[in-house]
């Protein structure tokens, strides 16, 4: 589904503050993969997502999505196949608009013409979909999204993204800003949608427990490289101590007590 070849990214090239954030990444993501991505702060996880989605362009290397080279394609054109959810629950919805308006905007990707599609049938469809979230939002379809809580907004964003039928789902720590109860709920929804809609997904998380529990494949990044890539049975038998041992033997250094990384 996604192939990254010799991908590198250097910020502030040829200046004193030059920083190579991605040092040659090669990875092939198979259709249907659910990959969890872990790594300490500054390992290049979000930069990797920005490169895949097209928000920034790589210094060298190429990006292929479904066999097409999209390395130079702008973000808005690549977005037709990619759904992306950010850590900030406010980033996926328009606050000053109603729930149904928000859902209308995201239910179809691509340029919108001045035609009225928000009719009774669409409203009923949206209401039915929102009912699946089980949050009582179906009676609030005409309220502004700004009146929703962070967890509700993130769940709505997830639903809206899935309804736009992307092939690839990029989740950038999408539960990190939520309280534990809402985080668990959004994670459960995430798993359900990914299985139901057969989405190829990558999920950045700082929660090693989630990283091991979810998905069929796990990659760990450090210093702009992928240092661990496990899948199948190896992934299933993984535990947090094993993961830490693996990191230690590869990097020849012990995990600094990075509290964000070690939360279980």
């Amino acid at each position: 589904m996604i192939t990254l070849k010799c991908l590198t990214k250097t910020f502030n090239r040829d200046s004193a503050s030059e920083k190579q954030v991605i040092k040659s990444i090669d990875i092939h993501v198979n259709p249907g993969d659910f990959i969890t991505v872990i790594g300490s702060n500054g390992a290049g996880k979000t930069t990797l997502f920005n490169l895949i989605s097209g928000a920034i362009s790589p210094t060298s290397g190429s990006i292929l999505i479904r066999g097409n080279d999209v390395t130079t394609l702008p973000e808005y054109l690549r977005a037709k196949n990619i759904g992306r959810i950010f850590q900030d629950p406010l980033a996926g919805t328009a606050s000053n608009m109603t729930l149904e308006d928000n859902m209308m905007i995201t239910c179809k990707k691509g340029f919108k013409w001045p035609v009225i599609s928000l009719n009774k049938k669409m409203r009923q469809f949206f209401q039915k979909e929102v009912t699946c979230l089980d949050m009582g939002l179906e009676s609030r379809m005409k309220e502004n999204v700004s009146t929703l809580s962070g967890g509700q907004r993130q769940a709505l964003t997830l639903l809206m993204t899935v309804l736009s039928r992307p092939d690839i789902l990029l989740l950038d720590e999408h539960t990190a800003a939520l309280d534990p109860r809402n985080a668990t709920m959004v994670m459960a929804l995430t798993r359900r949608f990914i299985i139901e809609k057969k989405l190829t997904s990558l999920m950045i998380t700082h929660n090693m427990g989630h990283a091991i529990e979810f998905g069929n494949r796990l990659i760990m990044m450090d210093g702009g490289e992928i240092i661990i890539d496990v899948q199948g049975d190896t992934k299933k038998s993984l535990t947090i101590p094993k993961l830490i041992d693996m990191f230690g033997s590869i990097r020849n250094k012990t995990f600094e007590n990075d509290e964000v990384l070690l939360t279980t």
């Binding site: 808005y76 905007i105 990707k109 001045p114």
Partner: peptide, 21 residues
């Protein structure tokens, strides 16, 4: 209309519009 709604979203959250393709 669909286009009119997207205008509303653009003023609110430009990133959302871009993610929408």
């Amino acid at each position: 209309t669909d286009m009119g709604l997207v205008f509303g979203a653009l003023g609110n959250n430009e990133q959302m519009v871009r993610v929408q393709g």
